[in-house]
Design a protein around this nucleic acid. Structure first.
Length: 271
DNA sequence: AAGAATCGCAACCGCGTACTG
DNA sequence: GCAGTACGCGGTTGCGATTCT
């Protein structure tokens, strides 16, 4: 299927944004909100394509962006999330309040990759570089620092926990995909083997498309099928927000050093 | 001081996918 | 079910800033 260009390329500005363009975009979005990116440039009086406006807003102009250097905790978190998710920058960014996927991607490529390589870790596989690789080898011997191995938690670590518990994400309805179970995960060294299972019996009663996604993890605790399987509560009453189940039970898993047992992955792809 | 090399990041491009009629 | 459209994502590029020689 042919695809038309996202916008008329002629008579469009390209390259770096000027201050005036920024002001126009910010002012338009403040008064009208984010809407149809295709029609926004014309409405806002900008000679840019909608894509360009969207990118500029998301990556640079959004008021909730956290500028400045990444903290050590953010580094650790990015590395661990990358080990689980790969180059799913948007998913990783969703766990780092105030950071954009583009920012994290750039940071990964310019800093973290190098850092891991200097430690003898392959940044793409998170395995030791000289480690013999086999198809079915389970990753379990790459640690991302001793910090999380201590039973005494540092202030930073506590802060990190806090950040992830809340996720810093807005409440929102999310898509529900078949359950993804991480089995045999042993934190602080994460087992990166992901197992994908079809929706469990209880959930089969829901008609697709499902309306949430779940990612079960454990920390050396039994993550039995009982745990991982769909809970028996009425599906209509389940909150599929980012705060799901984090504090509702005394049984919490310490994923990434965080007291949580469930993460919802908004668009875990089943490729 | 100046040119070359490298770095860092904003922005672009193309593709996949959801949505709509 | 299909085609067209719009959006979002990840990979890549371009270029100014910084460091090195």
């Amino acid at each position: 299927m042919g695809r038309s260009p996202c916008c008329e390329k002629e008579h469009m500005n390209k390259g770096a944004w000027t201050k005036e363009e920024d002001e126009r975009l910010v002012s338009y979005i403040k008064s009208h909100g984010e809407g149809c990116w295709r029609s926004l440039p014309r409405a806002a009086g900008l000679l840019r394509c909608g894509k360009s406006c969207r990118l500029r807003w998301i990556n640079y102009l959004r008021p909730d962006l956290k500028r400045g250097n990444f903290t050590h905790d953010e580094d650790e978190l990015i590395i661990k999330l990358h080990s689980l998710l790969g180059n799913k920058w948007s998913l990783i960014a969703a766990r780092l309040p105030g950071r954009t996927d583009n920012e994290i991607k750039n940071y990964w490529n310019t800093h973290i990759k190098r850092k891991l390589l200097s430690k003898g870790i392959d940044p793409s596989t998170h395995r030791a570089i000289n480690e013999a690789k086999t198809e079915d080898q389970i990753v379990k011997d790459v640690s991302f620092g001793s910090k999380f191995e201590n039973t005494e938690k540092s202030v930073d670590q506590k802060q990190s926990k806090k950040n992830l518990n809340g996720f810093g994400c807005k409440e929102e309805t999310v898509e529900y995909y078949p359950v993804v179970v991480v089995e045999e995960a042993i934190c602080p060294d994460l087992n990166l083997e992901l197992k994908i299972s079809p929706p469990c019996q209880n959930h089969r009663e829901r008609t697709p498309p499902y309306t949430a996604s779940r990612f079960y993890m454990e920390n050396g605790m039994e993550c039995s099928s009982e745990t991982a399987k769909c809970q028996t509560e009425d599906s209509s009453s389940i909150s599929y927000s980012s705060s799901i189940d984090v504090s509702s039970s005394g049984v919490g898993y310490d994923f990434l050093g965080l007291k949580t047992r469930v993460l919802d992955f908004r668009s875990m792809e089943m490729k």
